[in-house]
Design a protein around this nucleic acid. Sequence first.
DNA 1: TTAGGGTTAG
Length: 602
Amino acid sequence: MQVPAPIRTPAWVSTRRLLEQKLSDLPKHSTTFNQLNQLHALIYKHNLHQDPFIMPKLITAYSLCRQMSNAVKSFRQVQQPNVHLYNTMIRANVFNSLYVDAFDVFFHMQRCGVYADNFTYPFLLKGCCGFNDYVLVKMIHCHVVKLGFCLDVYVPNALIDSYSRCGVVGVGDAKRVFEGMGEGRDVVSWNTMIGGLVKVNRLSEARGLFDEMPVSDMVSWNTILDGYAKAGELNDAFELFERMPERNVVSWSTMLTGYCKSGDMDMTRMLFDKMPVKNMVSWTIIIAGYAAKGLAKEAVDLYERMEEEGYRPDDGAIISILAACAESGLLWLGKRVHQSIKRNGYYCSTLIENALVDMYAKCGSLNKALSIFNGMGKKDLVSWNAMIHGLAMHGHGSEALELFAEMKEEGFTPDKVTFVGVLCACTHGGYIDEGIQFFYTMERDYGVPPEIEHYGCVIDLLGRGGRLQEAFRLVRTMPVEPNVIIWGALLGACRLYNAVELAQEVLEHLVKLEPENAGNYSMLSNIYAATGNWASVADVRLRMKNTGSEKPSGASLIELDDGVHEFTVKNTVHPASDKIYHMVDGLSDHIKKVGYIPDVIY
DNA sequence: TTAGGGTTAG
């Protein structure tokens, strides 16, 4: 069907200009579906749905408010898309993490004989980051070289970035592209290369380039600052921070992250309070920092202050904060974030729903996790994995396995993370033979080769099932080097079955890997004690003293409405200590009367 | 091109 060319009356021209302006002015996050649909209808009415300037703007607007099906519909309305429209569509897909679709658009474009330009390859290379796939980047690189494509600075810069994001395997290629650019390098090339080296922890090399670069800008300073902060070299980072010709919100946030990760929340707070300009990222860093450390009151207070000051948490903020809550079991803040999502009607993406499922599951609210999971419009593999793992870790092994079966029926292919959850479900549900069966068939039936995580699970499974020799044999024959988790699982099993000799051997391996962890010695000491070998208990204690490893006392944390309460052995600092001990003594007497024999830890 | 981002064994 031929679309008649619009008649360019002055009224048409002004409508066109108005629509173009409206599309450009749309706010990124608060655009509603209706607003956009109205604009789309107007575009149709004025016969502008073939317009080479209007349509990319419409597609971008749909993409920004996560309406990709409408973006695709709009794209299909255009009969002869030009390179600009293809580029827009590739970028829209990448922005929405639809990497496969982005590549499909690229192939479609080639089939239609439309030539890629300087923008196509950088957009496409950004799509490779989603796969984090070195081979894919290499393929595009070869493609560009084969075409004899004019290597404008944008394309090699994108190549440096994409290669660097592939980690250690790609950084060599990134360097070759960087060096090949010669005099053609701009400040972005230098910054990207420095960032790439920082990503693979080659800090001194990055510093060398930073010192060597002809002209540095704020991004260069921030990149190298981030390198020091991520490496935990906070003194060096701070020195650099003070020496910076000027600082922006990114520089301050980089320092916040550094101190947060080192656990120094006082310093983090001091910097945060001193920041001249804050943004969503800086609020997120400090709130998630407090949350991850279980500092409930500080985290919730700041979250509320942030909302009072008119900040609306974006996807990044919500996900980071929920993840931090999940890590420390901070249900209080997790619920608070969930409330504000509901109250403000934020768009709840699959990413956010996954974070909610994970948070509720990790915090022990399995019903809440399940109700969100069941109500999800669109589940992805991560949703299933999070729910399976959540059920498994709380002892609902059979439910987890049922969910695994359901997931396959729905057409999802399990990945390596799924099998960690499945094996964990078997361990905690006591399904030893089933677990071993899964372990030995995961590669054959699903093409997922077992990795160290799966060996960890199955060794735990065998160990808890009392099949210690089998577990030990597997550790010795497995193709990967056993780590502390593997040896730790084995030591735990030895403790369960009082396997003294095996425990001694396992401990020697563990001590080599983590000499500073006193928990390992305690475990061995407990095994000796359980078998009445008091002389060896004394030996181990002496060895602990000599090596200077002191086991920190364990603490229990309970979250009530007003925050997290910590309890340790013989600790009386809690304001309600007297009442609590009274209750504990009463309970203790009661359970002994009904036949409880305490398992004394030595 | 720089700061925060979901699922992973003891």
